[in-house]
Simulated scan of single mutants.
Amino acid sequence: METKHTPGPWSYWSGYNPLDKIEAQVTAEDGDIVIASYNHLIAEGEANAKLMAAAPELLGALIESRQVIATALKVGAPDWFDTDDKVAQHATVKKIDAAIARATA
């Protein structure tokens, strides 16, 4: 799948840089900054930055999981899920497809 975002893996760095007053940054493998800072004034700020750093890996795992679920539905319930269109109507698959579409739009 072709993506529009900076390729992963991303990493997370935390600390205070007085020069540019950054609290944290999420960087690509080559060191380019993906996300420059987080809001240190809210308790969730650092956790949010860590979640963002995991985004490419999470997206990849979700895409792979969708394929596994589709196969399991077709094998486990072939009378109900005998086509890709029927698999796409499963409630969990719908949520996965929506999340993937949102992340790759």
Rank of each mutant, 00 (worst) to 15 (best):
E2G: 02
E2F: 02
T3M: 00
K4E: 01
H5S: 02
P7C: 09
G8C: 09
P9L: 14
W10T: 11
W13M: 07
S14T: 06
S14C: 03
S14Q: 08
S14H: 07
P18N: 13
L19R: 15
L19F: 15
L19K: 15
D20M: 11
K21P: 03
I22H: 09
A24G: 08
A24K: 00
A24M: 04
V26R: 01
T27R: 06
A28S: 00
A28L: 04
A28N: 04
E29F: 05
D32S: 14
I33E: 07
V34G: 04
I35M: 06
A36H: 10
S37I: 06
N39T: 02
A43E: 15
E44Y: 08
G45Q: 07
A47F: 03
A47P: 09
A47R: 05
L51A: 15
M52S: 04
A54M: 04
A55Q: 01
A55L: 11
A55W: 06
P56S: 12
P56D: 10
P56I: 13
L58A: 14
L58K: 13
A61E: 05
A61W: 05
A61G: 04
I63V: 15
E64R: 04
E64M: 01
S65P: 00
S65C: 10
R66P: 11
Q67D: 03
V68I: 08
V68L: 04
V68N: 00
I69T: 02
A70W: 01
A72S: 06
A72N: 04
L73C: 01
L73W: 08
A77V: 06
P78I: 02
D79V: 08
D79F: 09
W80V: 15
W80C: 11
F81L: 08
D82V: 00
T83S: 15
D84N: 15
D85P: 01
K86I: 10
K86C: 08
V87Y: 12
V87A: 12
A88V: 09
A88W: 11
A88G: 10
A88Q: 12
H90V: 04
T92N: 03
V93F: 14
V93M: 15
I96V: 13
I96Q: 13
I96N: 05
D97C: 12
D97V: 12
D97W: 14
D97H: 14
A99Q: 15
A101V: 10
R102Y: 14
R102G: 12
A103P: 09
A103E: 12
A103F: 11
T104K: 00
